[in-house]
């Protein structure tokens, strides 16, 4: 018997009559509406104490990021490429003031607007990159793990080969191949997303493949084979649904890595042109020279935006990781009242 997870009440009875009765209660407590069983919501309900605090902080940051991205045109005081309003130039390197809450950059952009519009680029790249690598990685992993043999060996070798490259270098190469280094908004976003995809696909591939290889030997898959179930049904019904447990975790951790890779690409000059879209990494790059001359506002705020976005997504991911693992999960202490009754 396991000690960390004492058997549910339905498992301990001897007579079948009280088994049926106690299972009834198990069933009613275990069944809750579908929306409460969604990954992050169910995690939030299960969490307590510090873990709950971490998860909520992360969620607040992430939701803030998403809302800012969605309502950027309403929130931002100016456009991302605007160097002046009503025919009047903002002027370069203006310190924070009532007109420009966070000041202006050397090229005369409003820093606050750039930071707010930057969330759009970040979210777009994050979603494109993670979704593309998710579908490709899961499909390949499922196939490779289930079929095995030479297909598996070739795919694993390819994944290893991609791992061998420094991911940023690979992303730079990909962005040069795809867009020649610089381009318009969607071209830039897709180039960045695709180059991140190439780096992430092996991760999803590996995780799903490992799960599938493990699950393939599970009795319930063998039970399906004994029945004569076809390959497609085994992969779709039995393997896919059971192997995607860890995906929300990689999903969030990869999202934060996507933001960082995008920022790094922009910082190194392989990002999106400032007139096509706002991008934090690019702004940071331009702010480098300012920092030595005491102009702090051009670098600080895009940097803070990156930190907040990455922190939010990572906190959510780490909390999910801890909450998924029963050994890391903290639980509610028994209430004092219950303890008194017992004593």
């Amino acid at each position: 018997m396991t000690l960390s997870n004492p058997v549910p009440p339905g498992d301990s009875g001897s007579a079948d009559a009280d088994l049926a009765a106690s299972s009834e209660t198990v069933a009613t407590t275990a069944r809750s509406p579908w929306y409460l069983q969604l990954p992050i919501i169910s995690h939030l309900r299960r969490s307590v104490g510090l873990q709950r605090g971490m998860l909520i902080t992360g969620l607040v940051l992430v939701i803030g990021l998403l809302l800012t991205a969605l309502f950027a045109p309403l929130i931002a005081p100016y456009g991302f490429a605007a160097t002046g309003a009503d025919g009047v130039k903002f002027g370069g390197q203006q310190p924070p003031s009532a007109e420009h809450l966070l000041g202006t950059t050397v090229t005369g952009f409003d820093v606050l607007s750039r930071v707010i519009w930057g969330t759009r680029t970040a979210v777009a790249v994050m979603v494109c990159a993670v979704v593309a690598s998710l579908f490709l990685g899961v499909a390949l992993g499922l196939l490779s793990g289930y079929v095995g043999g030479w297909l598996d060996r070739v795919l694993v070798m390819l994944a290893d080969a991609i791992y061998a490259f420094p991911s940023l270098l690979l992303a730079i190469v990909m962005s040069i191949v795809i867009s020649g280094g610089q381009s318009n908004a969607w071209g830039g976003i897709l180039a960045a997303a695709l180059s991140i995809t190439v780096v992430f696909v092996p991760q999803y591939f590996r995780v799903i493949r490992a799960e599938v290889v493990r699950l393939k030997a599970e009795p319930f898959v063998e039970a399906a084979k004994v029945i004569g179930t076809g390959h497609r049904r085994i992969m779709g019904t039995h393997l896919l649904r059971n192997s995607t447990r860890t995906l929300p975790l990689i999903f969030t951790l990869n999202s934060s890595e996507a933001i960082l890779t995008l920022a790094a690409l922009g910082f190194l000059g392989f990002g999106i042109e400032p007139t096509s879209a706002s991008e934090w990494g690019y702004d940071l790059n331009r702010a480098m020279a300012d920092a030595t001359s005491g102009i702090w506002w051009t670098g600080l705020f895009p940097g803070l935006a990156i930190v907040a976005a990455v922190l939010g997504v990572t906190l959510v991911g780490e909390s999910i990781n801890d909450l998924n693992d029963p050994r890391l999960r903290t639980r509610k202490k028994r209430s004092r009242a219950a303890r008194k009754v017992a004593a």
């Binding site: 599970e218 009795p219 319930f220 039970a223 399906a224 004569g228 179930t229 049904r233 649904r241 059971n242």
Partner: peptide, 24 residues
């Protein structure tokens, strides 16, 4: 199978588990 805990797909209901041979 030997172990009833692992010989069922945890994502399917009892109905779906028993009906699987029929579906196939």
């Amino acid at each position: 199978f030997q172990d009833p805990a692992t010989s069922f797909n945890p994502h399917l209901t009892i109905q779906e588990c028993i009906a699987e041979p029929l579906i196939v």
